[in-house]
Design a binder for these strands. Structure first.
Lengths: 170, 170
DNA sequence: ATTGGAATGTCAACAAGGCTGACTTAAAGT
DNA sequence: ACTTTAAGTCAGCCTTGTTGACATTCCAAT
């Protein structure tokens, strides 16, 4: 591994020279960027007696309408008790609808109501606005790299749930 | 690659055309990657009666030894009561040392003890390992893009605290 | 020297949102 | 018939965030 810092590891042949300092900067960048990334929806949710957990549930129900509780559980990586607490309030407040499964009546299929979809859109638009601004500022090549690093950082288990891989990767 | 599928001329200007779907994938990538990113240190901390808050305190005390409580507060973005609870246990357990300031004796200057530095290294090494693997897998160009997007995503306020900008940006 | 304000620390109470464990109900699978 | 699965519920615990109130210490200005 006599490669300099500019070595190309794209094919996986040559190794990158990565100092602890470079890695540390990446770690801090993740910390600060993620905080900013969640700040906008948090601001909207605060005062509505909702939190980040509700946002996540709403997000994934919107992505996969009709998903079951069990499926949502495995995506979110929390216990059913934790999810249930969140889901119950969303259903009570009329943002989420829970329908008994046709094929398997044990399952509950989750959908957003109109009100739920409206909140989802408000939340995701706030997040998209920041993402859009960052993408524009960084440029298309940077965006591709950003996505590549994040995908490589995920647990393989979670990569299954990540919809980005099912399309637009070629 | 100035005009890949992600960019498109727009009224003569070279604006990025970003679909909601592309942005959503970026949002989800952040979610899943951040979870993976914090999972390794969380695993180490669990059972030691420490949590992510302790990790963050230890991290930034290590980066800026001698930092004051107030400065740490503004970096972490939590209340002094929250930070104090964490700091107190770290001091009691002999991981952090709090020294009264010489110039201003109201201030407390924070340092890691040897034990604290050892834990810091264990935690950061776990995180670096994942980051290193992702960087190697994605390649140097992707890493540069990753950093650029994250920096653009941060709040300007927080960019001041981000050490990555003070060096290695040319 | 006294006073005002800043920095720090502490106590108490509360909420969100994780967790475990135990248990029920209903439906499906065998 | 029995077991397993999906979902829901109750109770209790932990971490980590929040407010509000208050004490202490010290610097700096009056």
């Amino acid at each position: 591994m006599a490669d300099g810092p500019g070595s190309q590891g794209h094919g996986g042949e040559l190794l990158l020279y990565l100092t602890d300092e470079q890695l540390r900067q990446g770690i801090e960048a993740m910390f600060f960027a993620y905080r900013a990334f969640t700040a906008d929806p948090d601001r909207i949710l605060q005062g509505l007696h909702y939190g980040r957990a509700h946002h996540r549930a709403i997000h994934f129900i919107n992505i996969a309408p009709g998903t079951t509780v069990n499926n949502l559980l495995s995506i979110l990586g929390v216990t059913k008790q934790s999810l249930n607490r969140v889901l119950r309030t969303l259903i009570e407040d009329g943002l989420v609808e829970s329908k008994v499964g046709r094929a398997d009546k044990r399952e509950r299929h989750l959908h957003l109501t109109e009100a739920g979809a409206a909140l989802e859109h408000q939340l995701s638009e706030a997040q998209r606005a920041r993402m859009r601004a960052a993408y524009r500022q960084a440029g298309p090549e940077a965006v591709a790299g950003f996505r590549r690093v994040l995908e490589a950082m995920m647990d393989p288990e979670m990569r299954r749930h990540y919809s980005g891989l099912r399309e637009a990767r070629g």
